[in-house]
């Protein structure tokens, strides 16, 4: 678990995605190969701006044990300004969320391995007021 999380830290702490210079497509999570251009792909890693809007969402009432404290919480499908779609927790009152709502990235805790294990951090979204 430790090395698996550590390898992805860069992409979780910030929205670092990839860009194909051949067909101008953006990807998140980052890809090593462009699915459109395949062997002609020219992949470059780039940080995304972190602003977007809600395309759709769901409110989780029946949460896994480690997320019980946060329920009910919102999980949203978010379209970033470059067209990339990400699924992320949206930290806000479930009454507040609506389709089309403008959101921005936020650095938050994902969870932790109990009281003596490591703490997992990463990107979530919050309303962009």
């Amino acid at each position: 678990m430790l090395p698996r999380f550590w390898r992805k830290i860069k992409y979780r702490y910030d929205l670092v995605g990839s860009y194909c210079e051949n067909c101008q497509s953006f990807f998140y999570p980052p890809r090593n190969l462009c699915p459109h251009c395949r062997r002609r792909s020219k992949i470059k890693e780039i940080p995304f701006d972190g602003k977007g809007r809600v395309l759709s969402y769901t409110v989780v009432h029946d949460a896994p044990e480690e997320y019980k404290e946060e329920k009910p919480y919102v999980v949203a499908l978010i379209e970033l300004e470059n067209g990339v779609r990400v699924i992320s927790q949206l930290v806000c009152d479930p009454e507040e969320v609506e389709i089309g709502m403008e959101v921005k990235k936020a650095f938050r805790k994902y969870g932790e391995d109990g009281n003596s294990g490591i703490i997992y951090y990463g990107t979530k979204f919050v309303p962009d007021n």
Binding site: V91, A106, F107, R108, K109, Y110, I119, Y121
Partner: peptide, 16 residues
């Protein structure tokens, strides 16, 4: 702080 906020998250947001 929110349940998913701590000194590290506050530091990152201020620094950003």
């Amino acid at each position: 702080p929110d349940v998913d906020e701590d000194t590290a998250t506050i530091s990152v947001e201020a620094a950003r």
